[in-house]
C-alpha cells in the first residue's frame, strides 16, 4: 500500500486536488487500461519538457516564436495583454480577436511579493516601443490586483503615445437587468458609454 499512499500524496500537489479527490483519482487510475495510463503519463511529461515560453509573447509553445506571433495574417499592430496562458485559450476560442498577445504570467501584488520585475512587463515595454503598435488592450482580470496591474501598465506605456484600452465589464449580453446582481449592475452603470 505504500505506493498507493505515495500516489495519493503526490496527486495532491495539483491545485484544487484535496485528499478526497486524490483518493478517487488514484483508484480510478488503477481501474484504467494500462496503456491509457502510460499515454497520459507520457503526455504530461512531454508537455512539460517541450512546452516553453514564447520569446516574444511568453505564451506556452512548442515552437519558438509561437504560432500566433508568427502568423502574418493576424493584425500586427494590436496587442492584448493577459494574465495567464489560459486566458489566451479562452479568447482564441471565441475567434473574434485577430491581434497579438502578451502574457504577463501573474499580476502585481505586494502582499504576495509580486512586483513588476516578477512579470513579463519589461519585454512588453520593449516590444511596444520597438514595433509599430497601434493599440494595447489590457485584459487582466477585473480584480483589485488586475486593476492595479492595468493602471501600472497604462502609466508605463503612456509616454509612447499609443492607444491604451481596458476591456469593459458589465452585464452579460442577452441577460436581463432584472436578473443581474447588484454589484454587476452598479459596475455596468459606471462603465456606461454614449450611443
Amino acid at each position: 500500500m505504500r505506493l498507493l499512499e505515495e500516489l495519493i500524496e503526490k496527486l495532491q500537489w495539483l491545485p484544487g486536488i484535496g485528499r478526497k479527490s486524490a483518493l478517487r483519482l488514484a483508484f480510478y487510475l488503477q481501474k484504467m487500461d494500462e496503456a491509457k495510463v502510460k499515454e497520459l503519463a507520457g503526455t504530461i511529461v512531454r508537455a512539460r519538457t517541450s512546452l516553453k515560453e514564447c520569446i516574444i509573447c511568453h505564451n506556452l509553445t512548442e515552437t519558438n516564436p509561437c504560432p500566433i506571433c508568427t502568423d502574418k495574417s493576424r493584425v500586427q499592430d494590436r496587442i492584448c495583454v493577459v494574465e495567464q496562458p489560459s486566458d489566451v485559450m479562452i479568447i482564441e476560442r471565441i475567434g473574434e480577436y485577430r491581434g497579438l498577445y502578451h502574457i504577463l504570467h501573474g499580476v502585481i501584488s505586494p502582499i504576495n511579493n509580486m512586483g513588476p520585475k516578477d512579470l513579463r512587463i519589461d519585454s512588453l515595454l520593449k516590444r511596444v516601443s520597438q514595433n509599430k503598435i497601434d493599440e494595447v488592450i489590457i485584459a487582466t482580470n477585473p480584480t483589485t490586483d488586475g486593476d492595479i496591474t492595468a493602471v501600472y501598465i497604462a502609466k508605463l506605456l503612456k509616454p509612447l503615445n499609443i492607444k491604451i484600452t481596458r476591456i469593459a465589464r458589465g452585464l452579460p449580453t442577452g441577460s436581463d437587468i432584472e436578473f443581474a446582481d447588484k454589484i454587476t449592475i452598479a459596475k455596468a452603470l459606471e462603465g456606461r458609454q454614449e450611443i
Binding site: I108, G115, P116, T144, D147, I148, T149, Y152, K155, L156
Partner: peptide, 10 residues
C-alpha cells in the same frame, strides 16, 4: 515608485 503611483490612483 510606479507601483505606488498605480496604487495611489486606485
Amino acid at each position: 515608485v510606479r507601483v505606488l503611483d498605480a496604487l495611489d490612483e486606485e
